[in-house]
């Protein structure tokens, strides 16, 4: 493998050829904020929060999609970069509800973290902001399009499983929105509630309904568990508060790890002290079902029963 050497804020770094500037910086322990970048899904380069200054390059390139080259000089916190990041954050906040106090994502939100880091106190621009109804008509996922920053991670991760591909970008420009087919609520779409999208959302636009109001993120203890319902071996986290297990959420949808609803429900039954009742869609409506039905174990249980 061939290597290239570059400087990041004056410090020399050597990385394999083909590495992005973002990864080179991370290698060197230099922080660069990101919203739309996710190493497991196709690159997108849309949020532009990760811009850096590289003398000789036109404009401020996005570090997550720029390849490090030999002799490159990178500045990650130059005045132009800081001005750009602050402005981008102000722009995002100008079109975002000021709702951190009650937001499920409070404490684990990138928008909040970066606003803090770059001391962006308020929106900075007044004007129109989006005003979509909350989508909480299904038992599992709450979508708040007003909090969405259109990073597209949910779309890319959902579309990584071709026969899901339930959501996509819809409309255009300022009206761009993540939509299901015909822009229906998620509950009316073909969504399978695997939660891949929820695991990747950097802000509070997607949240777990079963966990709503169960506790703030810093109050929760986390423990990794592996699902054994199928060979994929997806990893989940069991969340507990005050010694009581309150929820199970997928940790990450790694490569080739599809995640699914059945797996999560099974783990809820296994780990939770007080598992919420499972729901499945029947004739287009959600209905509470037995655990056996939710986990597809009715036949087996019937057989076990017969055997006595």
């Amino acid at each position: 493998m061939s290597y290239v050497s570059l400087t990041i804020n004056g410090v020399m770094v050597t990385v394999p050829k083909g590495t992005t500037v973002l990864n080179a910086a991370r290698e060197a322990g230099v922080f660069i904020p990101t919203f739309c970048h996710d190493p497991n899904i196709p690159r997108f380069g849309a949020c532009r929060i990760c811009v850096v200054e590289i003398p000789g390059m036109r404009n401020l390139p996005a570090s997550c999609v720029t390849e490090a080259t030999e002799g490159m000089e990178v500045y990650t916190e130059s005045p132009a970069v800081v001005e750009a990041r602050k402005t981008i954050l102000e722009l995002l906040l100008a079109n975002h509800p000021q709702d951190c106090l009650t937001c499920e994502k409070n404490g684990d939100c990138r928008l909040q973290d970066y606003a803090f880091r770059y001391s962006v106190k308020e929106a900075g621009f007044k004007g129109e902001s989006k005003d979509y109804p909350l989508d909480d008509t299904n038992p599992y996922i709450i979508r708040d399009a007003n909090k969405c920053i259109l990073c597209g991670r949910c779309v890319r991760t959902c579309n990584a499983i071709p026969d899901r591909s339930v959501i996509d970008f819809g409309y255009r420009g300022f009206n761009t929105k993540i939509v299901t087919a015909m822009d229906t609520p998620l509950g009316e779409s073909d969504c399978v509630y695997c939660g891949r999208c929820v695991t990747v959302c950097p802000v509070g636009a997607l949240a777990w309904k079963p966990l709503a109001g169960k506790g703030r993120t810093w109050e929760m203890a986390r423990q990794d568990v592996t699902c054994t319902f199928c060979d994929s071996g997806c990893v989940f986290e069991v969340l507990s508060k005050d010694g009581k297990n309150v929820g199970v959420i997928p940790k990450a949808s790694g490569n080739g790890r599809p995640l699914c609803l059945k797996g999560r429900l099974g783990l809820e039954l296994k780990y939770l002290d007080d598992p919420p009742p499972p729901y499945l869609k029947k004739d287009g409506e959600f209905a509470q079902v037995s655990w056996a039905e939710a986990l597809g174990l009715e036949d087996i249980l019937a057989k076990l029963d017969n055997k006595g």
Partner: peptide, 16 residues
């Protein structure tokens, strides 16, 4: 009105 809406600065910035 012609911004595609993909990137933040153009989508939000043109509006402001």
């Amino acid at each position: 009105s012609e911004s595609c809406g993909k990137c933040t600065p153009c989508r939000e910035g043109t509006k402001r």
